[in-house]
Amino acid sequence: MAAPVIQMTDVTVVHSRAPGVPLVTGVNWRVEEGECWVVTGLQGSGKTALIETAAGLHPYPAGEVQVFGQRVHGTEGEGLEDVRRRVGVVFDGHGRLFGSQTVLENVALPLCYHRNRSWEEVGEEVMGLLQLMGLETLAGQLAGRLGRAWAHRVALARALVQRPGLLLVDNPLTGMDPYHARWWRGFLGRLLVGLPELGGVPMSLVLATNEPRALLGLGRKFAVTHAGRWRCMGDRQEFERCEDPELRGLLYDED
């Protein structure tokens, strides 16, 4: 049987800039291959830190995190680079693109680095991906000059270029206009069933959001970071039935 994509056992997630401050404690979480998890919670409840911990970017003071069966602990651990290459991360906001590089260079960088190829040699492959994502006209633009919605899409392209098995997306729809929000939902749905252009393999998705309503149709399982605790809520029906007033405040615009 294949190892779970993510396995967290009693993990304490801390703030990236304040390692002594626990944000979420007691995280027990198992993500299987092909699943789509929506992790929600109020702003500042630790969703981003959780995602970065799962990506092997943060150390954590307690528990154990395994990704694709490999133990990760922030910057430590053998084979961490290989694990990171199997995990695509789309950061919040402008996606932490390299602002002084063009869109093409941003997306091509991981391929060039890991395959030891020049920009020209991977250009065709990268342009194919950019076309698939409607970004081909932006290829020559500096990433630092893109608007938020387009930058976030470029960040998704950069995360996908190495064909990861797991995609972690932080706030995919926050601040998006309806056009981009629809595109994101559609594209993430296609990734979930497997895009032929990316090998056709269903991808495991973890989507962190403080607007879970927009992702109700996409998520198969739901979890919440709330008041420093981690709660797996189950499927959509179970999630929608939750009684906690603050969690209901995330889902429903009611007093």
Binding site: E52, E81, R84, V87, G95, R96, G99, L109, Y113, Q162
Partner: peptide, 18 residues
């Protein structure tokens, strides 16, 4: 400060090397 170093790490690129 803007998190591009973490972005490199997330891509499996060693920031010290790059």
């Amino acid at each position: 400060a803007v998190g591009e170093v973490e972005a490199l790490e997330a891509l499996g690129i060693d920031p010290i090397h790059y």
